[in-house]
Design a protein around this nucleic acid. Structure first.
Lengths: 120, 120
DNA sequence: TTGATAGTGAACCATATGGTTCACTGTAGA
DNA sequence: TCTACAGTGAACCATATGGTTCACTATCAA
């Protein structure tokens, strides 16, 4: 259970940075070298390397080094856990708002009834 | 566009902490005061207050202070953007893995054909 | 009125994060 | 072989984060 928590931690943290989300989108188009990514995001090689490492750590990206270039591609994890977590909470949210809607409807009906009673 | 990015930033960052995800789950059951939450998560009032503020900032929680107690409840945002982002990328992932599957199938067929050709 | 309770804000602390530079290794090509 | 290029790692820096304590305000209840 703790493990599960930690994984959500690292994934959400990985996703909380614009650059890293950008890298994921970029890799959605095609694989890219670290240099490609560094240039695209106006950053030093070292800086980009760190981002790539974090994404790799989170399992969102895999890399392979052939010759002197390291190629990055989308990783094996498909964000299923994260999607599940968010979906679960969206449902919770929805359920509560539905309840609120019902309450509002109930109050409206009551108000209407009161008004009619008064009129008589 | 930048605004969109920033919002995803803050939400994902808000979600990347175990305690804060815990608070959201807790609030899914029922509303709670800051003191309730602080006790439940073994933390000082001040500490919990900070978490609540972050969740509020991200729009995931709303609070109302009546008398001396501030009650927290699930906020108006329903994580739709975040779900959309993740869903979009899950599809990307899936698409790429499907392509991989096809490639594998193709190679299998080729291999089989080669084997048959060899046998003759 | 007085004492306990709930929250707030400022200051502080240790550690994490996102970035850099610099020195280095390994590889590709002329 | 020599040079340029891709990546790596260590050191450093500024700022953010997650937490604390302490002093304060406001409210509730006896």
């Amino acid at each position: 259970m703790v493990h599960y928590q930690t994984r959500l931690d690292t994934t959400f943290a990985a996703l909380s940075d614009v650059t890293r989300r950008g890298v994921l989108e970029r890799l959605g188009n095609s694989d890219a070298s670290v240099t490609d990514l560094a240039q695209r995001f106006h950053m030093t090689l070292t800086g980009m390397k760190k981002h790539v490492s974090i994404l790799e750590q989170a399992g969102l990206v895999t890399t392979e080094k052939v010759g002197r270039v390291r190629t990055c591609k989308l990783g094996l994890r498909r964000l299923e856990e994260e999607a599940a977590w968010i979906e679960q909470h969206r449902q919770l949210w929805s359920a509560r708002f539905d309840a609120l809607d019902e309450l509002v409807e109930h109050l409206k009906r009551k108000e209407k009834a009161d008004a009619q009673r008064k009129r008589r």
